[in-house]
C-alpha cells in the first residue's frame, strides 16, 4: 500500500515532518519533491512555479538535500564536503569566491563544526556526519531543505540535537525545512507542521490539530501500539 492523495503546502520558516509506516512512500515522496526521481502523478510547485520548469542549476539554488545514501568518498574533509555545497554558484572549475568561503564558514559555525573542519569523514561519528551533511545543505543557500531520515542511527540526545538545530535554522533563516522521520513523538514536540501518511486522507497540519483529529491513532494496529493524545506519546500494549 502506497499513499495517494497527498496535498500539503509548506511556508517559509517552517519545520515540517513526514511520518508514516515503513514502505508507505515517505522517502519516495521526498525524493520526488527534490526531483531526484521522476514524479508518478500530480503537481509540485515551488514559489508558484512548476517543479518541471526549473532547469537543474536553477533548482540547485532553490532546493538542497540530505539523503540517506552514504557519501561516496569518505576521504573528504569536513571543509571540502561543505564547500561542495557551493557548486551551483562557482565558476566552471569550481573556484571559491570570498562570498563562498564566508557562507561555508557560517554553515560550519552554525552546526558547531568549525574546530574540526580538517577532519576526514571516515573519522566522524554518525551524529557528526549528519551535522556535516546538514551544513553542506545550508551552504547551498536554498530556500528549501529536504532531509531523508536525518535522525536514523542516532541516539536520543543526538536526535533531539539535530531536530533542534533544524528548527532554529528554519525559524531564523526563514527556510522551509521538510524531513522524513520515524520519530513521531519527537516530531510532535518540535515540528511546526506534520504530514501523516496513513494511506487514507493523509492529514497535514500542526501537531496539536492532528492529535485532535486523532490522526496518529490509526497509524499502527491498536492491539500492539496505542497513542495517548494527552501526553502525545505511544504506548506498547502488552
Amino acid at each position: 500500500m502506497v499513499a495517494e492523495d497527498i496535498d500539503f503546502t509548506l511556508e517559509q520558516g517552517e519545520l515540517a515532518a513526514i511520518v508514516g509506516i515503513n514502505g508507505i512512500g515517505k522517502s519516495t515522496l521526498l525524493r520526488t519533491l527534490g526531483k531526484i526521481q521522476p514524479k508518478l502523478a500530480g503537481g509540485i510547485e515551488y514559489s508558484d512555479r512548476h517543479l518541471e520548469s526549473f532547469r537543474s542549476l536553477e533548482l540547485a539554488s532553490e532546493i538542497s538535500m540530505v539523503l540517506t545514501e552514504p557519501v561516496a568518498s569518505k576521504n573528504l574533509t569536513i571543509w571540502e564536503l561543505v564547500a561542495l555545497g557551493r557548486q551551483p554558484y562557482t565558476n566552471w572549475i569550481g573556484a571559491l569566491s570570498e562570498k563562498d568561503r564566508k557562507s561555508i564558514t557560517a554553515s560550519l559555525q552554525r552546526l558547531e563544526l568549525e574546530e574540526m573542519k580538517h577532519k576526514k569523514c571516515y573519522e566522524l561519528s554518525d551524529g557528526q556526519l549528519q551535522r556535516v551533511l546538514i551544513a553542506r545543505a545550508l551552504a547551498q543557500d536554498t530556500s528549501v531543505i529536504l532531509l531523508d531520515e536525518p535522525t536514523t542511527h542516532l541516539d536520543l540526545y543526538h536526535k533531539v540535537q539535530i531536530l533542534k538545530v533544524l528548527k532554529s535554522i528554519a525559524h531564523q533563516t526563514k527556510k522551509a525545512i521538510l524531513f522524513t522521520s520515524h520519530e513521531i513523538e519527537m516530531a510532535i514536540q518540535l515540528c511546526d507542521k506534520m504530514l501523516v501518511l496513513d494511506g487514507g486522507d493523509n492529514p497535514f497540519g500542526q501537531p496539536c490539530e492532528l492529535i485532535e483529529q486523532r490522526a496518529f491513532e490509526k497509524l499502527f494496529p491498536s492491539d500492539t501500539v496505542s497513542f495517548n493524545p494527552m501526553t502525545g506519546s505511544f504506548r506498547i500494549e502488552k
Binding site: 537543474s56 536553477e58 539523503l67 552514504p70 557519501v71 561516496a72 557548486q87 566552471w92
Partner: peptide, 24 residues
C-alpha cells in the same frame, strides 16, 4: 578531464547529491 573537474568533485558525494547540486 579538466572541463569535468567540477563535476568530478560533485561525484565524490554520490550521483544523487551531484544531481541535487545541479549537475547534468
Amino acid at each position: 578531464s579538466v572541463l569535468s573537474i567540477k563535476v568530478l568533485n560533485a561525484f565524490l558525494l554520490g550521483e544523487n547529491y551531484a544531481k541535487s547540486l545541479g549537475v547534468n
